[in-house]
Simulated assay, not measured.
Amino acid sequence: MSNTRMPVGIVGFGVRALLIDDLLARDDIEVRAICDPSDSARARASDQVPSALVTAQLAEMLESGVEAVFVLSPDDTHAAVAKACLSAGVAVFCEKPIAISIEDADEMLVLAKQTGARLYLGHNMRHMPVVTLMREIIQSGRIGTVKAVWARHFVGHGGDYYFKDWHAEQKHVNSLLLQKGAHDIDVIHWLAGGYSQRVSGMGGLTVYGDVEHGKPAGDMMTDWISTDNWPPTEQTGVNPNVDVEDISMVTMQLDNGVFATYEQCHYTPDYWRNYTVIGTKGRLENVGDGPGDAVHVWMSRKAGFGAPDEVIEIPEASGSHGGADPLLLDEFIRFVRDGGTTETSPIAARQAVAVGVLGAESIRTDQGARDVPALDPELIRYFDEGQPGSRSGVAAQSAR
């Protein structure tokens, strides 16, 4: 790796820019420019990173010599911002979801291939210890060939995190099956070893449509989050324009024969993810999803409920999101400088969005099944091979 610090830009200095702490702690990154249309966000950026160019204009950021851009803005802006960066030959780290429509996601993939600018997706859960442990158990063959994956997400902070600001509006997120569920759907696909080809869903706005609406105290979720906000029916300051579901259930049929379900509820008392993976020789299930919790593995028959044959503790890891974020940044920086394959995948990100989009469409109409549109095999090959024709931002800019 080069000894020079990589000059990067950040688009969006809201709650997702908490990743800035990890960026500023690195000696191989220079945060050169920050772009946000909000006056208050630019003021925070100037205070936190006084050495950076702070601007409301994306073009000004792209002219500052950044080698890569972190797209951390609201979901509905991801496609436009990323496409502008890719067109300028700048490498892109795009926060999930890749986009809020299948069409925009596909256009991003095509543009990345056409320009040769490197595209990376921030699906940090592929680096979370609980997920990597489950994947290692599956790959060891202990539970046989995967046939089913069931995932439940208990979003205990949902009322504070997703129903008081732009996250609560379809025009900004389409559905929380994308904003929140893209992580889990991607994990389902990764653990199952395939992608969904048919999707159906049910769900609704069952609690937060009936609570007190108004303006929350503060500018973003970190200002108003409180575990004292309980029960969910007593939440205040909910977005008056809330039109996303607070409970969603999706079924998926994968291209390798695996069947899967994903369930998401935003008003549970607890906040964690539970995955059950069933194979031809056994099953696994995580009990808790953080360090010190465990993955249970059953590989022998039981009469009724029986103790697992193995209990494997989820390892400790340093850094945010269970240690995933530093590993994610390590991988992205290496990818921008050297290329090569990565654990995260733009193709997988598109496929997760496709499930979210079609699942939401099913929920809001007839609850019937939808087929996932196929991608060009050449496009899949390009990304699966690590974007072999891609260039780093500096190389792409010098080639123009």
Rank of each mutant, 00 (worst) to 15 (best):
A192K: 01
H213Y: 07
V295T: 15
G282I: 09
V297Q: 14
V238Y: 05
D293M: 12
V250E: 07
A260Y: 07
G193M: 00
M220D: 14
E263H: 14
I247H: 11
E263N: 15
N274Y: 11
A217F: 08
M221D: 05
T233F: 05
K215V: 07
V287I: 15
N256S: 08
N241F: 09
T236F: 01
M249K: 11
Q197F: 06
D186R: 00
M249I: 12
D210A: 04
T227G: 06
V258D: 08
Q235K: 07
V258K: 08
W272Y: 15
I225M: 07
L191N: 00
P269T: 13
V187Q: 01
Y208E: 00
V211C: 02
G218Y: 06
G193I: 00
T227Q: 08
V277C: 09
N274A: 12
Y275S: 10
G282M: 09
V207P: 06
T268V: 01
M202A: 14
H296L: 12
M220S: 11
G279Q: 10
A192T: 04
E212V: 02
V244A: 06
I247M: 13
D246T: 00
Y208G: 04
L254A: 04
N274F: 12
Y271S: 14
M221S: 07
W190E: 03
I188M: 01
V207G: 05
Y195N: 09
S200M: 02
V297K: 11
W190T: 05
H266Y: 15
Q264K: 09
K215Q: 09
G292P: 13
Y271A: 12
P291E: 15
H189I: 00
Q197R: 10
I225W: 12
T236Q: 06
D289Y: 13
D186T: 00
E285H: 15
G292M: 09
H213R: 10
V207A: 08
G204Q: 01
M221H: 10
H183F: 01
T276E: 15
D219E: 14
L284K: 09
G209Y: 10
D184A: 03
T261V: 05
T268Y: 05
I225T: 13
P240F: 05
Y267V: 02
H213T: 11
L205R: 08
V287H: 15
P240Y: 03
G282A: 11
V244N: 08
G201L: 02
N239F: 02
D270K: 11
S226L: 00
V199P: 12
Q197G: 03
V244C: 08
S196A: 15
V211N: 05
G237N: 03
D246R: 03
G194K: 04
D255G: 09
T261G: 14
E263Y: 13
H266K: 05
T268F: 06
D228C: 03
V187N: 05
Q197D: 06
A192Q: 01
H266T: 06
E285V: 15
T261A: 11
V238D: 07
V277W: 11
N241T: 00
N274D: 14
Y195E: 03
V250S: 07
S248D: 12
